[in-house]
Design a protein around this nucleic acid. Structure first.
Lengths: 210, 210
DNA sequence: AATTTTCAGATGACGTTGTCACCTCAACCA
DNA sequence: TGGTTGAGGTGACAACGTCATCTGAAAATT
């Protein structure tokens, strides 16, 4: 026998999986609540028992993406059998790999607060208080950032670690994003995304050591 | 008296302006063909006389964004009154400024081939031949890249200019994109987007000189 | 054990959207 | 001048997000 809580949890999981799969295949617009429901074996209205709206569902998917990334970097960081510099390279590569394997999810990770127009967002938060769901994604992304920052610190020391960590993250994200857009494909640059990531890490680490 | 061609050209312009304005205000989803038409003084069906579909309209807007950027960098590059290193800094800053002023347009610039799933896209192009509209955006983006590359070459020389140019572009794009997403706002990094751009340019130029 | 409450899920409905087929009519060309 | 063209208007359609309402079974209460 299945308790109600179990059944609900299973449905929620199925909804998240279905949404993630549709996201990978066709991007956010391809994630229709009707099809998500169908894939999860429920009807179009069911998702509203688990998520406030479509955006919340996608935010939850992004949230799990950050979690996975954070776990991976954490495992990497706490592995004593490898030198710190290798760890940093692999931490960056973890982000790049996820971006390569799941381009649309990558886009989602760096877009969960897309709707806010900057200023409007802060006003909204001041008035309504922090919303429940976005904060989950916020926290998950924060966990990844903490882990990543720790890896950077292990290599470059406390001094300017945040600055260089942010530069690494932004650089890696930019490279992956431009690769998706086809902006690195032109043979104008005479390079590849992999070479760029390599140079990025080397150059930033050297700057950090100085 | 207005000729038909003039009237049509004016409508097309009005449609592009309206779409660009709506894009700036609320992102791609806020660009409704109905509202675009209304702003341009026509009805919802009229845009289809000028653009194949909504995506083509947005692609055309992105195309003009690239054009503007290319023009700006070109003017900068051919100004003899300033040192090459300053020009490079300002070329990067041109991209950053546009990203700051028009976040949604920035997103659009790096996303005009979002729908393609990489492999699928190439198959489609092989079968159907190059589509008319995406190639326009492609060319406009290419013009910007050429101009930017020329600026980089003037500073760092031919050797590895493409590599370092691509790294600069990807880095700048990544920084702006992360800023939009709020991922630089956390005081975890103890830095700002401006500082990051500064470090990026300095570090890459140093690497290029070596 | 019987009854009430709760809540996941189903269903019908509504407004909005992109898109198309069809219509109109003024500018254009022969 | 009469036919052609093509920009724009209009009605219609399917798909979508979302909500109000209903249902039935699990859970809580008595």
């Amino acid at each position: 026998m299945v308790t109600r809580a179990e059944s609900a949890a299973a449905t929620r999981r199925a909804l998240l999986d279905a949404a993630a799969e549709l996201l990978d295949l066709g991007g956010p617009d391809a994630v229709t609540l009707r099809e998500v429901g169908a894939k999860a074996g429920v009807t179009r209205g069911a998702p509203y028992r688990h998520f406030a709206d479509k955006d919340s569902l996608l935010t939850a998917v992004a949230s799990e993406g950050w979690e996975r990334l954070a776990d991976r970097v954490h495992a990497l960081r706490t592995d004593p059998s490898r030198p710190a510099s290798e760890k940093l390279r692999d931490a960056v590569r973890a982000l790049v790999d996820l971006g390569r394997a799941q381009p649309h999810l990558h886009r989602m990770l760096f877009r969960w607060n897309d709707k806010r127009l900057g200023t409007l967002e802060r006003l909204h938060r001041q008035v309504c208080g922090p919303a429940g769901d976005p904060d989950a994604a916020d926290r998950a992304a924060g966990r990844f950032q903490e882990e990543f920052l720790a890896v950077v610190t292990a290599v470059a020391g406390e001094r300017g670690a945040g600055h260089h960590g942010a530069l690494l993250l932004a650089g890696a994200h930019g490279i992956v994003d431009m690769e998706h857009g086809g902006h690195l494909g032109a043979d104008r640059w005479r390079t590849t995304a992999d070479e760029l990531v390599g140079t990025l890490v080397r150059v930033v680490v050297e700057a950090g050591e100085r």
